[in-house]
């Protein structure tokens, strides 16, 4: 037969010296992506190495390494990790920005204290991303934050992002804020449409 019994390899345990933070941080700059991925993975279980991961994230272009850097920061889940990741919301690199949104929404407890600051950012793109990440953020204050955006934010696309989020997680008490938003942008057919959808879904409750 062509089938041969495979041998399952023994796991190599502890690769010694390179496991210290200095060694791993250096390995994050290695030329071989596999080596960088491996270092990024191991730093995910070492607290205090957020800065090293975040620094590398700023200019890592290999998608598989970037995924691992973000995943390790998610696993660390610290305030340092959250603030550093949030800075990358301003990046010109779309895939980095979106990887960051995804990471942040998976860290509700660490992200929550930073939401109001993000929603008040001068850059509308950052505010849009903040609304985007609220969709997936498991936190009881999400409807309150989004209602605040609807009543106060002057940018139509930020409001559209908040409406979209509320379409999925809206409650009846969000309806007044949705109506207020519709009154503020009467000339936007998309926003009127989206608000009608969001109200229909929220009011059903």
């Amino acid at each position: 037969m062509g089938l041969v019994k495979a041998k399952i390899r023994k796991t190599k345990t502890g690769s010694g010296a390179s496991d210290d933070m200095v060694g791993l941080s250096a390995a994050l700059q290695a030329a071989d992506p596999a080596e960088r991925r491996s270092a990024a993975r191991r730093l995910g279980s070492t607290t205090g190495c957020e800065a090293a991961l975040l620094d590398r994230l700023a200019f890592e272009h290999e998608a598989s390494v970037r995924e691992m850097l973000v995943l390790s920061l998610m696993q660390l889940g610290t305030q340092d990790a959250v603030r550093g990741l949030a800075e990358h919301l301003r990046s010109e690199d779309a895939s980095l920005r979106n990887a960051v949104v995804e990471a942040l929404e998976a860290m509700p407890d660490a992200v929550a204290p930073n939401i109001e600051l993000l929603l008040a950012d001068h850059d509308p793109d950052v505010r849009i991303f903040a609304c985007n990440l609220l969709v997936g953020l498991a936190h009881p204050d999400v409807p309150k934050w989004l209602s605040h955006v609807l009543e106060n934010d002057s940018h139509v696309n930020v409001c559209a992002a908040a409406v979209d989020a509320l379409t999925e997680i809206g409650r009846p008490d969000c309806v007044p804020a949705l109506r207020a938003c519709a009154r503020r942008f009467p000339e936007e057919p998309f926003l009127s449409f989206a608000i009608d959808v969001a109200i229909a879904r929220a009011a059903e409750q």
């Binding site: 992002a161 979209d164 959808v197």
Partner: peptide, 8 residues
């Protein structure tokens, strides 16, 4: 990724 855009 926005459901309202897809519906619109």
């Amino acid at each position: 990724d926005a459901i309202t855009i897809r519906l619109f």
